[in-house]
């Protein structure tokens, strides 16, 4: 909790330093993304108030540029490769299966904050296609039926 207080203090500093410059919104958002790892609703409201702009403006910019994520990432980031090799070998079905098992869309995070599901470009492990990565650990030659088991393993891990 104090950690979050610290982060908001850091953001406040950034806002104060840029406040009177035109076009401050973009660098403040970038800074916030760096500090928090995402620009959530609370963070955006804080920025709007700090800079004296509307939440509409902040949200508009944040959703226009792909570099900003609106929600915090889950504890485990699952990236499924959609590069050509993996795609040809059926990585879309892997992605669909993950989405089904986790009950979230691609790009989403589970409500318990444990998993975030992402599609990525080639991970450079084409020999193992189709491939996915969970927090840096690579899983290759995947078929949809092995997915529930893998997820179960992570679910069972204690925090």
């Amino acid at each position: 909790m104090d950690q979050s207080k610290e982060k908001f203090a850091q953001l406040q500093e950034l806002i104060d330093s840029l406040k009177n410059q035109p076009g401050a919104l973009m660098p403040v958002l970038q800074g916030a993304q760096g500090i928090f790892g995402c620009v959530s609703e609370d963070v955006q409201k804080f920025i709007a108030e700090g800079l004296g702009v509307t939440l509409s403006e902040v949200y508009g910019v944040a959703t226009f540029y792909a570099q900003f994520s609106l929600h915090p990432k889950g504890k485990y980031l699952i990236s499924v490769c959609l590069g050509t090799a993996c795609y040809v070998k059926g990585s879309q079905t892997i992605l669909d299966k993950l989405s089904e098992v986790l009950e979230i869309p691609v790009g989403g995070t589970t409500p318990d904050g444990k998993f975030t599901l992402e599609a990525t470009r080639c991970l450079g492990a084409c020999g193992l296609a189709p491939v996915m990565m969970i927090n840096g650990e690579v899983y290759g030659r995947l078929t949809p039926d092995v997915i529930p088991g893998i997820i179960e393993k992570y679910r069972a891990k204690e925090d």
């Binding site: 509307t54 509409s56 403006e57 949200y59 508009g60 959703t63 226009f64």
Partner: peptide, 8 residues
């Protein structure tokens, strides 16, 4: 300013 463009 309660409405604005979102997404792209």
């Amino acid at each position: 300013g309660v409405i604005g463009p979102v997404n792209r």
